[in-house]
């Protein structure tokens, strides 16, 4: 069953065609990697899938509903309820502790639950750093807080934009381990990356060039076997 479908999606900014006639389906529980050079349309596609932008043409079906013509207010609600975002720059709120940063996502979603937020931090191996401010955490730890925040509301779709882009190899492996674990548990993940090694972790990789899908490849690794 497809969780996400892009049907003939194009995005045009003035004379720039950022995306052209994209057709893509992402199955429930699939791990998809999106690669491509800068300016190939990766970010535009992620923004559209992440309900932060709307396509100029085409339809975006998320969980059976077309979100391509929704109002900004509805898109915010869809993003809040169905999507978990992971950023390259982590983007934690600097005056809140790791635990509070996770709880912020709960706060805007429904009700903050400290116990549940702590469990999310435990899941990413950071329960002992819960009371620390982002400035007191390493890059890898900050990214794990970002992942815990993205997971806290049980999103249908996890969108990660260069999640290992700012990490060293050790932390990259920790983060990829978490992604593997999430995938095994059935999460649907879309990861934008420049790193072929990270892309290889996904079940499928699409390569964007000049706003079009230039290549699709299936990866076969044992960690994808449930």
């Amino acid at each position: 069953m497809n969780l996400l479908e892009l049907k003939d999606v194009s995005k045009i900014y003035g004379s720039v065609k950022a995306l052209q006639h994209i057709d893509l389906s992402v199955r429930q529980g699939e791990w998809l990697a999106v690669m491509g050079p800068s300016g190939s349309g990766k970010t535009t596609m992620m923004n559209i899938v992440g309900c932060m932008d709307k396509p100029s043409n085409g339809a975006v079906i998320l969980d059976g509903a077309d979100i391509s013509r929704e109002t900004p207010k509805n898109l915010t609600a869809i993003r809040r309820d169905k999507i978990g975002l992971i950023f390259q720059q982590f983007h934690l709120i600097n005056y809140l502790t790791a635990l509070e940063n996770v709880m912020v996502a709960q706060y805007y979603h429904s009700l903050p639950d400290e116990k549940e937020a702590m469990q999310a931090l435990e899941r990413v191996g950071l329960s002992n750093r819960a009371k620390h401010l982002p400035s007191q955490l390493s890059g890898g730890e900050q990214q794990r807080v970002c992942i815990a925040r993205a997971l806290i509301n049980y999103p249908m779709l996890i969108l990660a934009d260069e999640p290992t882009g700012n990490l060293d190899e050790t932390n990259e492996n920790i983060v990829l381990d978490i992604f593997r674990q999430l995938h095994r548990e059935g999460s649907t993940i879309i990861v934008v990356t420049h790193d072929p090694e990270v892309a290889e972790e996904a079940q499928r990789t699409i390569v964007l060039e000049h706003g079009r899908i230039a290549a699709i490849s299936e990866n076969h690794q044992k960690n994808h076997q449930k």
Binding site: R80, L85, H91, I93, Y108
Partner: peptide, 8 residues
């Protein structure tokens, strides 16, 4: 960021 997290 707050908007991205779904804040109105």
């Amino acid at each position: 960021l707050k908007k991205a997290l779904g804040a109105s």
